[in-house]
Amino acid sequence: MSKTGVLNYEPPGAAPPPPLPALPPPQTDVYQPRRSIAQIIGSIVLHVVIAALAIISLVPFFWLICATFKRHEDMFTYTFLPWSEPKRLTWSNFTWLFEKEQFGQWLLNSLFVSSCNTVLVVALSSIGGFALAKYQFAGKKPLMLLMLATMMLPSQVLLPSSYELMYKIGWLDSYAAIIVPGAVSVFGIFLFMQAMKTVPDELLQAGRVDGCSEIRLWWEVALPIVRPMIGAFTLLSFMSAWNSFLWPQIVLQTQTKYTLPIGLTNMIGQPSYITPYGALMAGTLLSILPVAILFFILQRDFIAGLASGAVKG
């Protein structure tokens, strides 16, 4: 599994479990009947069923990709692609996005908001989690109880009063209204607290003896040890910021400030024109891609993070 920096130390809690356990070696000393024909047929049926299910779950993606290259009038004429008439395929959906809609602007907005949000929430949660896990300080107990209590609440109850707050401090229609409150993640701070508990105290003490300041202990000792957790949490935060809809929909008002989810939904159901379905699908595809790319970079950490969370929960 992943080596964590120079320390080569694996925290038991945060360490991702292997994706799937390796098959055990064949047991030769146990009586094993040879595979019968029934078993082989069963195995084939099993694979056919699971492959069919996998295809069903992947078909929407395939359909989406096809739809982005279809002309508006062909959208529903052909189920997937006009196979026999490749000339009917078109790039116009993508050009429409950038010429007729402000898609490029929305994409940049989304990237900016989500990146800022992710960096802030990871930084705040990791340093806060470090403090909670490795220090004793006045007010720690009540603070944790308070955090735990708010964690149980559905966040939607905060929407009206947060809107009022943003109105009062003049943050409506600004990214600050999304980024700054988004930096608070009780879930994240608890996640990091759990992970940081696995950092050995002796290591920190040794650092202190060498005259290492506390902030450097966090940066150079603790963070490398919880690296898998950082990967998982970064992806999770970026995904939720990227896909966030309700709160940005409430605070953002100017069309040039829209993020992708809001911009795309605004393409639907405008009374003034017919919804450009092809362009809408192209926009959806382009909106999914960044998260997919980030997932491929961080996927091992991510699935492992999910799984370890499940076992603990």
Binding site: A54, S57, P60, N243, F245, L264, L280, M281, S287
Partner: peptide, 15 residues
């Protein structure tokens, strides 16, 4: 099976 989870709710709704 997992890949669909990467798509945000809004985009799923659009599709």
């Amino acid at each position: 099976f997992f890949s669909s989870h990467l798509v945000g709710n809004v985009f799923v709704a659009v599709i």
